[in-house]
């Protein structure tokens, strides 16, 4: 029997009222995160990855937004909580890491001041205790000479070092859950390796769960235990990482994986997905991927539900036999 999930998202929908009509940024997202599990959310630009995370945390500050569904954190519904009620959760029990470290840092304060503030807000530490803990955290995330660096300002750090500081802040209150939105997208590959390595090590010692959002299938494959592939605000496929990468079921996932140029070998042509991502103002009633799908059938004008076996689900009308036939043909 699996432990009860740390996070349980059910049928999350986020719609913005815009001049051009309703924009369905997230349209029925459901997934769970077990204790100590790393869940990767992957999808192309505009597929609703960031909006789904921001809406869970009550960070979508837009008068024109409507959010429905349910988000349970440790068994407690957090969707719709007031800022005051969310305050101990955000930055406390849930740590956050963003693509641009400067989202989380204030340029006019030293990094030490910012970590100390965070600790003082969420714990009962004294100033001196918080400062000692901040130095300890900086050292844990691999900032050399933390006793000196703690009094430096964010601009005195490189991009990779700043992201380390943000990770130190995110971890400061021993969060149960770490949400990282493209934490390494702005970084070089060698720095990305340092940061991902750090996240894995810390996850291990802090026993937190991680939700990592990225558009990079490679990062997902290396980090995540389970994957949610998003297309047009909807989950197209959900399952254990190894199954999704080695045995993808949804035509969109096939295209996504086939389009990645590899460093291990070279093939003459990359697989492509025809056309462009569907506009969230204009998502079809049926399968959101239908316009770009080469296997589209009549029934695809009806919306396919997420279904499957062994924890590996997908939203596509193709039968198992059809998929086997298509994949066998593709690999021959």
């Amino acid at each position: 029997m699996p432990e009860s999930p740390v996070l349980k998202v059910s049928d999350l929908k986020v719609t913005f009222a815009t001049r051009q009509g309703p924009l369905r940024a997230v349209d029925g997202l459901s997934f769970e995160v077990a204790p100590k599990e790393v869940v990767g959310i992957v999808g192309e630009s505009g597929s609703g990855k960031s909006v789904s995370m921001y809406s869970m945390l009550g960070l979508v500050r837009d008068a024109n937004v409507t959010i429905t569904g349910s988000v349970e954190f440790q068994g407690r519904e957090i969707l719709g909580l007031s800022d005051k009620e969310m305050q101990p959760i955000r930055g406390g029990e849930i740590g956050m890491i963003f693509q641009d470290p400067m989202t989380a840092l204030t340029p006019v304060y030293t990094v030490g001041w910012q970590i100390v503030e965070q600790l003082r807000t969420h714990t009962t530490m004294t100033k001196a205790q918080a400062r000692e803990r901040a130095i300890e955290l900086l050292s844990e995330v691999g900032i050399p000479d933390p006793r000196k660096r703690i009094d430096h300002y964010p601009h005195e750090f490189s991009g990779g070092m700043r992201q380390r500081v943000v990770i130190a802040m995110a971890l400061s209150c021993n969060p149960k859950l770490l949400i990282a939105d493209e934490p390494t997208t702005a970084l070089d590959v060698t720095t990305q390796a340092q940061i991902l390595d750090l996240m894995v090590k810390l996850q291990d010692s802090y026993n937190s769960s991680i939700v990592i959002i990225t558009h990079d299938m490679g990062v997902i494959a290396e980090m995540a235990h389970r994957v949610v592939v998003m297309y047009a605000g909807r989950p197209a496929e959900v399952g254990p990482e190894i199954d999704v990468v080695r045995n993808p079921r949804h035509p969109y996932t096939w295209g996504l994986l086939g389009a990645v140029p590899r460093i291990e070998s070279r093939n003459d042509r990359l697989a492509t997905i025809p056309g462009n991502a569907v506009s969230p103002l204009d998502i079809p009633e049926g399968c959101a991927f239908a316009d770009r799908c080469e296997y589209r059938m009549d029934i695809c004008t009806k919306r396919p539900q997420l279904k499957g076996a062994n924890d590996h689900l997908d939203a596509c009308w193709l039968s198992d036999e059809q998929r086997v036939a298509i994949r066998t043909k593709a690999s021959s």
């Binding site: 490189s158 990779g160 070092m161 070089d188 590959v189 060698t190 720095t191 990305q192 390796a193 340092q194 991902l196 390595d197 990079d216 299938m217 490679g218 990062v219 494959a221 290396e222 990468v245 080695r246 994986l257 990645v260 590899r262 460093i263 291990e264």
Partner: peptide
């Protein structure tokens, strides 16, 4: 350190994580 899809049984290159910054 390039993240790999790891979709075959071929062994992964051993990661060499460089220290410090450019």
């Amino acid at each position: 350190v390039v993240p790999e899809l790891n979709d075959t049984d071929a062994p992964r290159r051993e990661r060499i994580i460089l220290k410090g910054d450019v």
